[in-house]
Design a protein around this nucleic acid. Structure first.
Length: 804
DNA sequence: AGCACGCCGACT
DNA sequence: GTCGGCGTGCTC
């Protein structure tokens, strides 16, 4: 019987975004399963693909069908659950199925391709310039020819048939192995060997006796040298005699750097107890209920998570815990490791490709039961998920910014339906959408109103910086913040200073003509980095050295401007020369492990002040912090984003929560130029619900979520006119096809109007119910794929965008 | 997306 | 005459 595999090929393009049929060679009938990666011929080249279905017939004429070239996995890398999740993602987010499949795997399992040039004739026949590359072997890497700009010569050789170029799929995912020694399992057998040893070989006799006490056990050679007190030659001799053998053992690269002490469950408050009981009840009933756990900062949400996970493990299930990348601090992961020990895998962007792959395999092979990770950990290949948690559920990092543009919350809810398990969305400042859903009983609301250790909430003072300016204080520190800092330094208590960096970074400005140095590829000013004296574009990565004179007017009065953390650090040193400062920003934390190291320095009391951006707003829990200063609260308030008030409120509440979490009372000082704004006033009051009510009113007025859904269509082209014209066509098309009560805003320029040399325009769709939306967008893409893409137009559709 | 095929202009 | 430009169309 013939067997056909339906394969999604690794080519991200609309015309090939469907399964292709391949013949499964008879030898592999038992080997190939759904979810395996395979190598297949596709047109003139070889590509990687995923088997998504097995069938016994096909509609494709048999002369067109080609066989699978190679199987890359003995065990499928994707389960049936993941295959159907990919289909759902494809329609839900309008992406290529291959993108949806790839996002579920660690990058080590995604294909890498390499062009290889094969020599087809005798070396002497070949163009002598090319011949140099084939001295060692008949194969050479295509890149070498590119580097030496010999592509013309190469092409001629291809035309003459002297060489052949092939696209090869590189096998990925190296399993790390170490050599270990396994002692023979039978003591009697070892005893026999002992008889053969010469009486003079004292060391060998010593080792063989030690081996008799460790029959069948596995050691690293080093362990044996140390424990038995012998050297490599002695061990070698006994292995040759057969008392033990070398084996290859799979190892996992261990991303944890230090050991942690075991901890046990803490006593819960009545509130925590009640929240937990609701969650465990849903777990017992195998009910896919979504809980919104709204707990103020310091109310002990994490302890509720830990005990709920404990319950899942006791029921023989697994648990997925998501945290925003930025708060995936060592403190957080340690807390999980100390509770669940070796049962925990960690997934975040700080791990190497190999480490991520190893953590993934631990999950897939069932070696761990809990995963703590950033967004993509929602795809953890567990088979019996008992609980999914999203901590800080309001964070925008849960939405992926490129294809597939999924929200981890939606995937979590999808998987919870599949596994019949609850989801916990936890936050001190829930996203408006989530709180609204809880109010409508779509989610079950659980509330923690008290701090777990009964500490008072910190006092929050708002300082009007306009008044400071009137009083002649032109520095970035208000008098009351300076006073409060001085007090803490005297009392040897710790300070956290938070710089709301968005729109606040340092740029280079000419004081004569006002020119700000811009990125040549994007419509964005370059950011100054002191450590290498360079200007860098944070969007496309372009960098250049700081110019000595203004590129516009040649004036030499050009200098960096703005308030980066480096500038603040300098200012603090002027005020308090004796203060010990730890600065955390992109510059100081870019190296691996730097984040952890800096927090260790601060946590152990070797510094007085922790100065940083967004990355210090969450998860920090140090008992000695009694003062939190927010240098400028309103920089995030005036961004052209309908969520800017919500973001500001969330940020201020989060950062205030860092103070006074233990015995000492905390104080928060917020500096602002708009103290009357409700986001700032209500953050001072530390009241979520009044903020929710006020903000819901604004959203209702302006027609934004949660009252309306949003969809964004972005058009980009290297030429402004083309981008604008086609964005106009998009708007016309949408207005024609969508119903009259759907609002279509635009086309307008995107907030970053040029990125990587492409001009960007966008249309925003606001709708309540529009059954035709997905269908209309798909039609739009159809037009685009046949016609527009040839003209260099790029079209992106983002449903429920996080940034507009 | 990539790559071959195929049809037109400017060169050894 | 041929080399190479890029518009067109297909990939099981």
């Amino acid at each position: 019987m013939t067997r056909i595999a339906k394969v999604i090929v690794d080519v991200a393009a609309y015309p090939v975004d469907r399964p292709f049929d391949y013949l499964v060679p008879a030898d592999w009938h038992d080997l190939i399963e759904c979810g395996c990666r395979v190598k297949v011929p596709f047109g003139p080249r070889n590509v990687l693909g995923f088997v998504v279905e097995l069938a016994s017939e096909t509609d494709v004429p048999l002369d067109k069908i080609k066989p699978i070239t190679q199987v890359l996995d003995i065990e499928p890398v994707l389960t049936e659950e993941m295959l159907s999740l990919a289909k759902w993602l494809k329609t839900q987010t309008i992406c290529y199925e291959i993108d949806a499949l790839q996002v579920m795997l660690p990058s080590a399992l995604r294909a890498k391709y390499e062009k290889i040039v094969h020599l087809q004739v005798a070396l002497e026949q070949l163009d002598p310039i090319l011949a140099a590359f084939f001295k060692k072997s008949a194969k050479a890497n295509f890149k070498q020819f590119e580097k030496e700009s010999l592509l013309k010569e190469l092409k001629q050789a291809v035309n003459k048939g002297h060489v052949r170029i092939e696209n090869e799929v590189k096998q990925q995912g190296k399993i790390k192995e170490v050599r270990k020694v396994q002692i023979h399992a039978e003591a009697s057998y070892i005893a026999e060997i002992e008889q053969q040893i010469s009486k003079r070989a004292k060391k060998q006799i010593h080792l063989v006796q030690w081996m008799k006490a460790h029959c069948g056990e596995i050691f690293s050679p080093e362990e044996i040298y140390e424990q038995a007190g012998v050297t490599a030659t002695v061990l070698q001799a006994l292995i040759e005699m057969g008392a033990a053998k070398f084996i290859q053992e799979e190892v996992y690269r261990d991303p944890f750097t230090k050991d942690v002490a075991q901890t046990t469950a803490l006593n819960l408050t009545a509130e925590q107890e009640q929240a937990l009981s609701y969650i465990t009840a849903a777990m017992k009933k195998q009910h896919n209920e979504t809980f919104l756990l709204h707990g103020i900062t310091g109310s002990g949400k994490t302890e509720v998570y830990l005990q709920a996970i404990q319950q899942a493990l006791q029921d023989g299930k697994e648990a997925i815990m998501l945290v925003p990348e930025i708060s995936l601090t060592p403190q957080m992961t340690e807390r999980f490791r100390s509770r669940f020990g070796e049962m925990v895998a960690v997934m975040h962007s700080g791990l190497s490709v190999g480490e991520k792959y190893d953590e993934w395999r631990k999950i897939q092979q069932g070696k761990v039961k809990v995963v703590v990770g950033a967004r993509s950990a929602i795809f953890a290949p567990f088979q019996h998920v008992g609980l999914i948690i999203l901590d800080e559920e309001h964070e925008s990092t849960y939405k992926q910014e490129d294809a597939p543009r999924y929200h981890a919350r939606d995937v979590a809810i999808w998987r919870s339906k599949f596994h019949q398990c609850p989801v916990i969305l936890g936050s001190a400042t829930p996203a408006l959408e989530s709180f609204a859903r809880a109010k409508k009983n779509v989610y079950t609301l659980l509330t923690l109103k008290e701090r777990a250790k009964q500490q008072a909430l910190p006092t929050v003072e708002i300082v009007d910086m306009r008044e400071e300016l009137k009083l002649g204080n032109r520095s970035m520190f208000s008098t009351s913040l300076i006073e409060a800092m001085r007090e803490r330094l005297v009392r040897k208590e710790q300070i956290v200073l938070f710089l709301n960096r968005r729109g606040y970074s340092s740029f280079v400005l000419c004081r004569d003509c006002g020119t700000v140095v811009q990125c040549p590829n994007c419509d964005i000013s370059l950011t100054y980095h002191r450590y290498n004296e360079k200007l860098k574009c944070h969007y496309c990565g372009y960098d250049e050295y700081v110019p000595q004179s203004c590129p516009q007017c040649q004036s030499e009065h050009i200098r960096f401007f703005g308030t980066g953390t480096q500038k603040v650090e300098e200012e603090i040193y002027k005020l308090f020369p004796e203060a010990r400062i730890v600065r955390m920003d992109v510059d100081t934390t870019s190296q691996k492990g730097a984040h952890e190291q800096l927090l260790d320095i601060f946590g152990s009391g070797q510094a007085d002040i922790l100065l940083g951006t967004q990355m210090i707003a969450k998860g920090l829990d140090f008992p000695n912090i009694t003062l939190v200063g927010v240098l400028s609260a309103d920089t995030s308030l005036h961004l052209p984003d309908y969520r800017s008030s919500e973001r500001t409120f969330q940020l201020l509440t989060q950062v205030s929560g860092r103070a006074g979490r233990h015995d000492l009372l905390g104080e928060v000082i917020i500096q602002t130029y708009t103290p009357e704004h409700y986001a700032i006033e209500l953050a001072q009051a530390q009241q979520y619900e009044p903020f929710y009510t006020r903000e819901m009113y604004s959203r209702h007025q302006a027609g934004y979520p949660p009252y309306y859904y949003l969809a964004l269509v972005q058009v980009s082209h290297e030429d402004v006119i083309m981008a604008a014209e086609y964005a106009g066509r998009v708007a016309d098309y949408l207005r024609e096809k969508l119903s009259f009560n759907v609002a279509i805003i635009g086309p307008t320029t995107a907030s970053i109007s040029r990125l990587n040399n492409r001009y960007r325009y966008q249309c925003l769709i606001k709708y309540k119910v529009e059954p035709n939306l997905i269908e209309t967008l798909l039609q739009l893409i159809k037009i685009y794929r046949t016609d527009w893409s040839k003209k260099g137009i790029q079209l992106i559709v983002d449903l429920d965008p996080s940034v507009i």
